[in-house]
């Protein structure tokens, strides 16, 4: 199931890096799967992706599908629009989510629902896949569980 977009159309759309570093992440998101970069040598997780494992320096990196369950590590309620597309969208909520089953890497997304609802650091969230058919991309968002 795909959610209706949380923010209005017109923001920069994500594109895979020219060098192919994160193509698999964005393709997985379109399949409604959350993947995190994982080192095939030491099994360590890494996010954002890089061409080398920062722990063992292996260049043999792959992708691990993860559960999409996480906890809120930090949050911010944004009131001042810095982009024309956001003029009518404030306030909105951005959260930083920690993924315990992916080596506690963190991902940024919007927290779906009422932006004025209190946010508790440490509370549980899960990934929601938000399709943007016009851009051909899917964003990974978060909702309370």
């Amino acid at each position: 199931m795909s959610a209706a977009p949380y923010l209005p159309a017109g923001l920069p759309a994500p594109a895979a890096a020219n060098d192919g570093l994160d193509t698999e992440y964005w393709e997985a998101a379109r399949r409604h799967e959350l993947v995190v970069q994982r080192c095939n040598a030491c099994q360590g997780f890494q996010w954002g992706p890089e061409w080398i494992c920062h722990q063992c320096h292996s260049f043999d990196l792959g992708w691990q599908k993860v559960s999409g369950r996480g906890t809120i590590y930090s949050w911010e309620r944004i009131w001042h629009p810095v982009h024309p597309a956001l003029r009518e969208a404030c306030p909105y909520m951005v959260v930083l989510v920690e993924l315990p089953d992916a080596g506690n890497v963190r991902m940024v997304g919007n927290l779906l629902g009422d932006p004025m609802e209190e946010v508790v650091i440490g509370s549980a969230v899960e990934a929601v896949f938000e399709d943007h058919p016009d851009d051909g991309v899917t964003l990974v968002q978060w909702r309370r569980v």
Binding site: P12, E76, V94, M107
Partner: peptide, 9 residues
Amino acid sequence: AYTQPYGLM
């Protein structure tokens, strides 16, 4: 790409 589409700019 991991921040701006979410309005973190």
